[in-house]
């Protein structure tokens, strides 16, 4: 049981104030972001809609401390599928930033995590070249 008044109702406001988080309140919870997400397809726990709902409801700590925050590939499929222009991929970057600022993740860890994609792209080209 969570008591709503203990939830942080300034959280959504704070997210929406930052560049990239402006449209979070547009969300009507349709699920298109999650339906088309390549990470959700292979990782059942990863649920962009849930992250948006939690943010709107004010589950501040659950969101900022969650490992899922770092699973996103930043492919922006969610952005292109969203009918309400919520721009989840951008919201996620805001949330990552806040997670670092609020000490949920060490800056050093965050830097490492940020570099994952660079490594990924390099690996992809290596694998493709290997197959060809």
């Amino acid at each position: 049981m969570t008591e709503l008044n203990q939830l942080d109702n300034t959280f959504a406001e704070a997210v929406s104030k930052r560049p990239g988080g402006e449209n979070i309140r547009n969300c009507f919870s349709c699920g298109a972001c999650t339906a088309g997400c390549p990470i959700s397809a292979i990782r059942p726990g990863y649920n962009p809609r849930k992250i948006i709902r939690q943010t709107l409801l004010g589950f501040r700590m659950q969101v900022l401390a969650s490992r899922e925050l770092w699973h996103c590939l930043q492919c922006h499929a969610c952005v292109s599928h969203c009918p309400q222009d919520v721009r989840f991929a951008d919201i996620l970057r805001v949330l990552r930033q806040m997670a670092v600022e609020e000490g949920c993740v060490q800056p050093e860890t965050a830097r490492k995590l940020d570099m994952v994609n660079d490594e990924l792209y390099r690996r992809r080209i290596e694998i493709v070249e290997g197959i060809l």
Binding site: M1, L4, K50, Q54, F59
Partner: peptide
């Protein structure tokens, strides 16, 4: 969507 039971005054 979050699977949470919420109680509020």
């Amino acid at each position: 969507a979050t699977g949470a039971f919420i109680e509020s005054s």
